[in-house]
Amino acid sequence: MKKLFNLEKIKALSYPPFKTLMIIHFLLFFLVILVVSRIHFSIPGFSVKGLYQFPNIWEFFPWVASWFNIFLTIVLITLVGNEFSFKTFRQNVIDGLDRNDLIKGKLILIFTIAVYTFIMVLIAVLIFGLIFGISLLF
């Protein structure tokens, strides 16, 4: 598993479109939540500020993050597609990987990206939730 993870790490981290799309995903997510946090809008029963407070923030941030999942999808499709267009899947099998290992490797990649976005959203939720929660106290 560690070997497959390391292989996918080398393949992905050195791939310029991977870095670009992941940075775009990260920036767009934080840009949206920062911009929305500056909006002072409220109607009876709803306030934008309320979205940044616990427990609403647990639903709001993952919802915003889901808008940009398209970038992650493109990254994954490109990385898997590359293996076929560069015929490197075939080369990996020649070099000694099982066909199952290749599929496992890509599943590990998908899982890793999922974990990364989960952690990114979790950290954002904790930071913004705490900031907006504390600011309400004062």
């Binding site: 791939y15 990996n92 070099d95 990987l97």
Partner: peptide, 17 residues
């Protein structure tokens, strides 16, 4: 091989496999 990887990185993949 992966055209966007250097020779060393490509061979690192082979060495790991």
């Amino acid at each position: 091989f992966y055209p966007y990887l250097t020779l060393w990185e490509n061979l690192k993949i082979v060495a790991k496999i």
